[in-house]
Amino acid sequence: MTITTVPEPVLAPSTTPRRRGGGRRGQGWAAFFFLIPWGAGIVLLTVGPMLYSLYLSFTSYDLLSAPEWVGLANYELMLADPRFWKSVRVTLVYVVVFVPLLQVVSMLVALLLNSRLRFLTGYRALFYLPSLMGASVAVAALWRQVFGAEGLVNAVLGVFGVEGVGSWVGDPNRALGTIIGLNLWAFGSTMIIYLAGLRQVPRELLEAAEVDGASRLRRFFSVTLPLMTPLAFFNVLMGTINAFQSFTGAYVVSGGTGGPVDSTLFYTLYLYERGFTQLQMGYASAMAWILLVVLAVVTGLFFRSSRYWVHYGDES
């Protein structure tokens, strides 16, 4: 299995060489007790359903009658399914554009908010506000107000004399852009993690750099950024995983169809349509496991690369 490559690099830089006796003794037992809740959850709630879905991916299962073994048929169908490939393309474009944008915007706003401004508490709350709307059913209506043919964006363009732009959410060439905008709108949670990281940067290190004559930019790149790499690593990795699984925004705005004409047919949206609308849970499970394998490879590469750029405080 591809996952096997994942965990090793994380733990490779162990602080001290493993030794018997002293403080290390009994760590196995301590770990056992600390891991009881998680272990019980994995065994009772997580692994079973996951493996069951793996089994379903080799069956034809319509939810209403018993699953029927079909071997690799779902996987073969998938490779020949033009809409499957459409959803792959939509998702890849989204990941490539959205993940870097999200990191840059979140980091910039976090930097802006990591200072001694008045009303800072208020600002933080307000920037976080859009993330709280989540998947609310109200979001679809709000997004039409902004990106519809008669929406705010076109009204503003009209002021500058640009007319006849048409709908943004309704145009297949632009609809994906509005979904990227929607999910970017909720950058608050990524920002909060960066902000918490920035707060941990010890002030004396930056002051020392300033005394040495380092410019602001240089201080950011050689002091702040390295110290934030564990959280940046977390944000980039989770951002990527979430982007591959992006569902809610497109589901809400397109009314579950991935339209117009499949232009926002995200991978998981298509998976959902197959599983719950077309009642082909076998096919949906096969799609899910292909995604798991792809994400395992991506995650593995991330972890492998992390030893070159992520600096942990627990390393000597």
Binding site: P7, R24, S53, T268, S285, A288, L292, A296, T299
Partner: peptide, 22 residues
């Protein structure tokens, strides 16, 4: 530090990789 730590942490990560719908 404990045995199979890497494997188990891999399992933690792996549970996030499967779309919850299935």
């Amino acid at each position: 530090e404990f045995r199979f730590k890497g494997v188990l942490f891999g399992l933690v990560i792996a549970t996030m990789l499967l779309p919850q719908h299935v």
